[in-house]
C-alpha cells in the first residue's frame, strides 16, 4: 500500500517537474527581454537538477546526485556569465 503510494508520488512529482521545466522554457522563448530569458534558463537548470534527484530516488543510483551537483555548478557559472554580459551595456536589444 505505502509502496504503491511511493511509486505514484514519484511519477506525479516527475510530471510536476516536467511541467515546471515547460513553464521555464515558455518564459525563455517568449522573453520579452533578454533578462527574462536568462531568468527562465536559470529556473530550467534548477528544475532539471530536481528532476535528476527524483530519478536518482526512483532508480536507487547515487550517481544522479553527482550529476545534479554538476548541473547546479554549470548553471550557476552560465547564469553569472550571461548576467555579466548584460551588465556591460553595449548589447542593448
Amino acid at each position: 500500500m505505502s509502496h504503491a503510494f511511493l511509486g505514484i508520488a514519484i511519477v506525479a512529482a516527475q510530471l510536476l517537474l516536467l511541467l515546471a521545466m515547460a513553464c521555464s522554457i515558455i518564459r525563455m522563448v517568449r522573453g520579452p527581454r533578454a533578462q527574462d530569458r536568462v531568468l527562465g534558463l536559470d529556473a530550467l537548470y534548477v528544475n532539471a537538477m530536481l528532476l535528476l534527484l527524483s530519478i536518482g530516488i526512483r532508480t536507487g543510483s547515487v550517481l544522479y546526485v553527482e550529476a545534479g551537483l554538476i548541473i547546479a555548478l554549470l548553471g550557476f557559472a552560465g547564469t553569472v556569465a550571461f548576467a555579466k554580459f548584460l551588465l556591460r551595456g553595449e548589447v542593448i536589444e
Binding site: S2, L6, A9, A20, C23, S24, R27, A43, N47, S54
Partner: peptide
C-alpha cells in the same frame, strides 16, 4: 524501504516538486 520511509519519501518528493512547479508557474 519500510512503509514509514516509503510514505515519508513520497510526501517529501511531492512537496519538493510542488514548490518547484509553483515557482516556475509564477515565472510564467
Amino acid at each position: 524501504l519500510p512503509p514509514w520511509a516509503a510514505v515519508l519519501v513520497g510526501v517529501l518528493v511531492l512537496l519538493g516538486a510542488g514548490f518547484a512547479f509553483v515557482g516556475s508557474l509564477g515565472l510564467l
